[in-house]
């Protein structure tokens, strides 16, 4: 495989970097050349964040260029929309539909777009495929809201032609989380897989 490009977006503190790291290790263990791009420092403080995961024979830089992401994994709907230009035509977005309202919106200085509008732009204007569901709810069902990123990673593995095997990814999560959190994370992973399967009709 030449290259596979994932962009992960969300709000600083949601676990975007952790998700990128897990996917990176899974790709490394699958024998791929890997590049991850991250932003640390000030942007991490509850601001908008984007991380890049790339693997394959032909990857060099750590950033996915605009128009080249095969798939976007997004922890928050507006943060999916903010980076929509990274998605290639016909790409897929896996998105947690639970919004985090920015302070500027609460102050009445800006508006939060409706979920329907966001989805319409993805599907109609950018010809993308949309896998949207409330991952936070599923994480709570699994046992803890911090497993939201595990739910989302589970869903990601069901994207058609996703090059990493779900079981390999599961293995990396298992050895990455603290021992006492393994069970909830496995549950969360399965709930994510199921959510994506339901939406994709698999």
């Amino acid at each position: 495989m030449k290259e596979y490009n994932i962009v992960i977006t969300g709000v600083g503190g949601q676990g975007v970097l952790t998700a990128a790291n897990i996917l990176g290790w899974a790709a490394l263990r699958a024998g791929y050349k890997v590049r991850l791009g991250e932003v640390h420092g000030m942007s991490q403080r509850f601001g908008s964040v984007i991380s890049y995961v790339r693997f394959g024979e032909d990857v060099y830089g750590s950033m996915v260029p605009e128009g080249k992401a095969d798939v976007m994994l997004s922890f928050e709907p507006v943060e999916a929309l903010r980076y929509i230009n990274y998605l290639k035509e016909g790409g897929m977005v896996v998105v947690n539909t639970k919004p985090i309202v920015p302070v500027q919106v609460s102050m009445g200085m800006a508006k939060y777009p409706s979920l329907d509008e966001i989805r319409r732009i993805f599907e109609e204007d950018f010809k993308a495929k949309w896998i949207g569901f409330n991952a936070e709810e599923l994480a709570e069902k699994a046992g803890h809201v911090v497993t939201t990123n595990t739910v989302l990673i589970g869903a990601l593995t069901q994207v058609p032609e996703f090059p990493l095997d779900a079981e390999h990814v599961r293995e990396v999560i298992k050895i990455s989380v603290p021992p006492k959190a393994v069970d909830v994370n496995m549950k969360a992973f399965d709930l994510g897989i199921q959510a994506a399967k339901d939406i994709l009709g698999l």
């Binding site: 600083g12 942007s43 403080r45 128009g67 230009n85 500027q104 800006a110 777009p113 509008e117 732009i121």
Partner: peptide, 26 residues
């Protein structure tokens, strides 16, 4: 390899819908 201007033009229409989310004090 891709038409960046076209992509930018499409994205320009998205921009006004985006509420800012600068980093903030925790």
């Amino acid at each position: 390899p891709i038409n960046f201007e076209e992509l930018d033009a499409k994205y320009e229409k998205v921009k006004p819908l985006l509420p800012p989310r600068p980093p903030s004090l925790c």
